[in-house]
């Protein structure tokens, strides 16, 4: 296990590279979901206003 974590002396480069990529993957999930949630909320609000105007 220690040998694996050490990555043949390249640990300082391999693990940060994996960490950065993982963070980008997870952030993308959060951003995409957030965008959809916000768009749905905005559309609801728009519909609500239109209904009241009518």
């Amino acid at each position: 296990m220690k040998a694996f974590l050490d990555m043949g002396g390249y640990a300082a480069y391999v693990w940060p590279a994996y960490a950065v990529t993982l963070i980008v993957l997870l952030l993308n999930i959060a951003w995409a979901r957030g965008a959809l949630t916000r768009a749905i909320a905005a559309a609801r609000q728009r519909l609500g206003t239109e209904a009241r105007d009518a």
Partner: peptide
């Protein structure tokens, strides 16, 4: 997968037709 989720958000933002918006929501 990300594109499909984001595309729904973009389509909603552009859409002004109340009838299908109501249906979609």
């Amino acid at each position: 997968a990300l594109l499909l989720v984001r595309l729904r958000a973009e389509v909603l933002r552009r859409e002004r037709t109340a009838s299908w918006l109501r249906e979609a929501l």
